[in-house]
Design a protein around this nucleic acid. Structure first.
Lengths: 189, 189
DNA sequence: ACCTGAACACCGTTCAAGT
DNA sequence: ACCTGAACACCGTTCAAGT
């Protein structure tokens, strides 16, 4: 939000960044050209110099999200050489999200907008593909590996969404037990 | 509450029904008082006689969805006495949705609106509770039964959503294998 | 009670005009 | 090139006035 030093002209990135913050906080519907313009101390007219329309802004914001997301998680996992441990780390991480991945939750819970559908699908492919590689490294056939990766991803998405709509109904202890249950079942040979 | 026999005046149900159809077809965002009024050959002013505002209409439509959904599925399952078979039926059904449950997909994919969050949570509780009862009938402890039911529900929601954003990436054969995998794992003792 | 039609507010989008 | 300010369209909401 705070731009360093003198603000000469607004970049598209500044708009996209502000939009992503709004999406994370309140969802895609809450993205309003008018309010973001006010936040950046610019006019709506200025916005339309940088973007074709509101949808283009949303698209840019989601593209930002995807890039940051991709650069983050997988790189960290690569530090762990054992594929079984990698999978366990992923499954564990899935069951303990903090308040910092609000955008993730909001997006997974709201892929109604075409740009959101695209962004979510891209991330889904990437994550399932990565998990399948780990399962394959454990000796499963490519097909079996892909099936298990897909099911693991379903669990992840379903958990995120259920936690989103009914946060109170999932106790910390239950989360831990469920994570163990899923890991045991999917990693069983 | 329905006015017996009179068809001169619109009932709230007529508005809610039309709104639910729109939600099923195009999502909550597409619900517009103006277009629904036109569809029913009424004016926007007329709408505001029956409802406080647009949100109240959405709420009524989702309440309709929940009622119809509840009356449907579980009653059918009660015809099957074996709990293991009931669970298998549920899991199988989860992996083969038709074009008829568009509202289900749209809602599960878009619980951003407060009323949608409430409706989805209510259905989630009901479904998890029902599945837990079946697992308990198989001899699992109440806690273990609830955990497995929750995980089964995560798989269901995650599958629905992934099928929503990436319908092409899940072949019919893969769907069948994944359904079998999940059933085997969750029903294993 | 139930509905119409006009009015207003909000926000997305355009555009002529400014620097 | 980049931005302003006014204008317009669309739609949610209100309300006085009709039946």
């Amino acid at each position: 939000v705070a731009k360093a030093g003198l603000r000469r002209s607004l970049t598209p990135e500044a708009w996209a960044d502000a939009a992503l913050a709004v999406i994370a906080r309140a969802g895609i519907d809450a993205v309003s050209v008018e309010s973001i313009a006010a936040e950046l101390a610019a006019t709506k007219g200025s916005f339309y110099w940088h973007f074709k329309n509101r949808d283009a802004l949303i698209e840019a914001a989601l593209e930002l999200w995807g890039r940051r997301r991709t650069e983050g998680t997988i790189e960290i996992l690569e530090l762990e050489p054992d594929p079984a441990k990698r999978l366990r780390m992923l499954l564990d991480a899935a069951f303990e999200h903090g308040p910092d991945d609000r955008a993730e939750i909001t997006l997974l819970a709201n892929p109604e907008h075409p740009a959101a559908v695209r962004a979510v699908r891209q991330q889904a492919d990437r994550r399932i593909g990565y998990m399948a590689k780990q399962f394959a490294a454990l000796g499963l056939s490519p097909r079996e590996a892909l099936d298990r990766a897909a099911v693991a991803y379903y669990v992840y998405v379903g958990y995120m969404q259920t936690a989103h709509v009914a946060p109170a109904s999932i106790s910390g202890a239950a989360r831990k037990r469920q994570a163990r249950l899923v890991a045991e079942q999917l990693l069983a040979r």
